[in-house]
């Protein structure tokens, strides 16, 4: 029990490029704390997910308590506190997409990737064994005219069918 609690963390610090971006960001706001969301986005892009070390680092940068950073991280669904796959697949399942059969797309992805759907508190559940994909459901992505839609990392894919999903996944590695 007690052994599990001792975690050796890899310390975190921005790389040069992100540090530059951060320096530019921080000048936009009259108080440092306001840079919280963009800073966390930067950190997550570099570290993959928000580790305790990241929170400590961000807290120091923005001159707030670690608790405040944690408070924010837990509120927003886009920040992960656990490792996720190389490709995060977000499947929209709100009404307009549901009317256009998003369930077929979701079931197809589940079968193809042989994984369950991640929940906000259990990302591992939706992550493939090889750590390549994380499958999750999200709410309306503001593209209901081209429903059903999914997002893979930063890119949106529209008017999906199981065949199109196959094609997209097969081509991912060549991007």
């Amino acid at each position: 029990m007690s052994d599990e609690r001792i975690q050796i963390e890899t310390p975190f610090a921005f790389n040069e490029e992100n540090q530059r971006e951060f320096d530019e960001l921080i000048g936009r706001y009259p108080v440092k704390e306001a840079a919280m969301l963009p800073t966390l986005h930067l950190a997550q892009r570099q570290a993959g997910y928000i580790t305790p070390a990241v929170m400590k680092y961000v807290a120091k940068l923005l001159e707030v308590t670690v608790m405040k950073v944690k408070d924010v991280v837990t509120f927003y669904p886009m920040f992960f506190e656990e490792p996720v796959g190389e490709y995060v697949i977000r499947v929209c399942h709100t009404l307009p997409c549901a009317l256009r059969d998003c369930k077929v797309v979701l079931d197809h992805l589940k079968a193809k990737l042989e994984t369950d759907i991640a929940s906000e508190t259990n990302l591992a559940k939706g992550t493939t064994a090889d750590g390549k994909f994380t499958l999750m459901k999200v709410e309306c992505l503001a593209s209901c005219d081209v429903a059903p839609v999914i997002m893979i990392n930063d890119d949106l894919y529209k008017n999906l069918t199981p065949e199109k999903v196959d094609e997209i996944l097969d081509n991912l590695d060549n991007l």
Partner: peptide, 11 residues
């Protein structure tokens, strides 16, 4: 922030 389900004009 356009997140209301069914809305996609701002995008």
């Amino acid at each position: 922030d356009e997140s209301e389900p069914g809305t996609f004009s701002n995008r």
